[in-house]
Design a protein around this nucleic acid. Structure first.
Lengths: 353, 353
DNA sequence: AACGATATCGGGAACGTTCCCATTTCTGCT
DNA sequence: AGCAGAAATGGGAACGTTCCCGATATCGTT
């Protein structure tokens, strides 16, 4: 296939022994000198060994090293799907964080189904990962309990079950900020596309919504809070439903950007405009939302921080009970999809002329 | 952290030897009986061994197995970024395909920079991957030549350099189909946002455009072909420029969906509409485009097929010179972002009334 | 210059598996 | 019943590394 530099000799791997012989030292010394975890020596021998290793084209056999060291330095990540940009962002962030301690992340997808989740975890464990990062946690997930019982090291990311080690964003605060922003813009009838109730993210963000409403002395119209999945279509359906009411909301908080994108499409299909007829706020601040033709207000989540925290939790020896759930702070990114009630009226009047 | 089932004994791994002792057979037999590559035996011993292994909670030490077998069954994938949905789709497809032969895919990102690409490849090779799948190929990429010289097994995906083993889509055909579609809709002034010239995908799709134009007896206005990156912003800029001309195109072919999404935004920012003022066609058919508020016409690419072919190329023993580049067929997905020139005029007239 | 402390070095035993090969057991046939 | 051939079994040697530990070299101190 690709021309092999040493075609004849099949077993032509350069081992640590070859390097040792060529450098005139013992294999132990080569191993030590080439061990990147030890403080780097610059002695004459060290330099010679490194040079010779390079010349010979030596690369450490990672399997042998792993076997002896008793660790693979691989972390497994389980996500619903990678085509969801949020998950791709989490993965990239985790990869960056893991690289700092020489680890690598391998990922498996579950399509949000529990059976696939079990398969994914078994697959990753079979691959020798040292720990699992789960972004698929469901409230009262029996699978997570199983993991704990099996003695698997794991941490939840983004979503939590309230008990396991977790690294999440402050979703309640995020929901609060989003809602507060809409209230500040004088919106009173605010719809919520609330996501699935099995995800802590969705629940907390909705909780933040309620908190902001209560704090402003507004009563929540429960019929304006509609459940959904995290998919675009679901956002579309929910928004269609909301905006077809006799008295539609003047603003919608979607607990996730995909939902918001779907809502956005639905609203336009109905001949209405964002933000002219209804303001829209999303969540996660995935790259695309700031590039839509109406750049979308969204809640920014510090994925890098969440990823680092997750790994820290995995590496920590002892953890205080009150530090089992690390929470990162989100921040609101106001953009053009949300404007004040007054401006909305004005822009609608202009069209009416 | 997590309660360990055998807290006292640190070195409490269940090995094949433990299973052998418990089952009263030799370790060789256990190894053989548990080898999933061999035809599955259902003899009495086999069943007992499997049962005992399960009871004891035995899991094969993958590092030891890899060391002995001399293979890691890991494939490395190098992509610019995973937050680009196209790349996420390729990754998921590759993972699915690799799983069929018990392999796992680990991915590294380069952000489209050659230095990071080198680092990524070294990292993956150091991790012991058996082969590399590159989705980052540039025309005349010195790095790829290096890989070949180092004897690294690799295959290019999506983009090709014209020489290496590659599994790609028929981009010229895709560009042709997109353009032909627009011509059939009576468009004559067609703009192209052509992507970066270092990517074979971009070049071929543009070539397909030219072919369709030539075939229809239309002369190509070179000033309507503008280069770009693969980013959303770049599509926005390019479309802004195109639509600000004194004589703007009536249709635009963007060689990638992200570009198209940016173009879409730009067109609306200018107070124009898709498809009312200008038809728009993208490429790759990422999930979001069918859910935009104007569902976008795009060229669908069979990623699963491209992924399988890539792996087949890696596994093939001998490859005919004319089979070094496998080409998968794209198909046009017509949606509402592209309509006939006549309908455009009509809808514009309506607005003018 | 002699001594103890410290750093460097090399031999060899793991790590847990697979796989070769010699041996034993089973199967079918005459 | 006897025997050839097939199938199953077990002993033991790898695979390439790391790491313990005893031995040797190096250094600073008195």
């Amino acid at each position: 296939m690709v021309k092999n530099p040493t075609p004849s000799n099949r077993s032509s791997r350069v081992t640590i022994l070859d390097v040792a012989r060529a450098a005139g030292v013992s294999k132990s010394s080569v191993s030590r000198l080439l061990d990147e975890r030890l403080p780097r020596s610059n002695s004459e021998v060290a330099q010679r060994v490194r040079r010779i290793a390079k010349e010979l084209g030596y690369v450490r056999d990672i399997s042998a090293a792993n076997l002896r060291r008793g660790s693979t330095s691989m972390i497994g990540l389980i996500v619903p799907r990678l085509t969801d940009t949020v998950m791709a962002m989490l993965y990239e962030a985790l990869q960056r964080a893991a690289a700092k301690s020489g680890k690598v992340v391998i990922v498996a997808t579950t399509d949000e189904t529990p059976e696939a989740e079990r398969r994914a975890a078994d697959g990753l464990i079979g691959r020798g990962v040292e720990a699992l990062v789960l972004a698929t946690a469901r409230n009262d997930d029996p699978f997570i309990k199983e993991l704990a019982e099996r003695g698997v090291k794991y941490v939840l990311a983004l979503r939590t079950d309230g008990a396991s080690l977790s690294s999440i964003g402050n979703d309640e605060l995020g929901g609060y900020l989003a809602t507060r922003h809409l209230i500040d813009l004088n919106h009173r009838r605010i719809g919520v596309i609330a996501g699935p109730s099995f995800a802590s993210t969705a629940c907390e963000r909705t909780k933040g919504f309620r908190k902001a409403m209560a704090e402003a002395g507004l009563t929540v119209d429960e019929s304006l809070i509609v459940p959904s999945t995290f998919g675009i279509e679901s956002g579309r359906d929910a928004a269609t439903e909301l905006m077809s009411r006799s008295e539609p909301p003047t603003a919608i908080f979607a607990v996730n950007d995909n939902i918001a994108i779907g809502a956005f499409a639905a609203i336009h299909s109905l001949g209405l405009s964002v933000p002219g007829d209804v303001s829209l706020v999303g969540y996660n601040d995935i790259p695309i939302v700031s590039h839509l033709y109406t750049p979308m207000t969204s809640v920014h989540v510090p994925f890098d921080q969440i990823a680092s925290s997750a790994l820290e939790l995995l590496e920590a020896e002892e953890i205080q009970p009150d530090e089992r759930i690390r929470v990162a702070m989100p921040s609101l990114m106001p953009r053009q999809s949300s404007i004040s009630r007054a401006s909305q009226k004005k822009s609608r009047d202009q069209i009416a002329e």
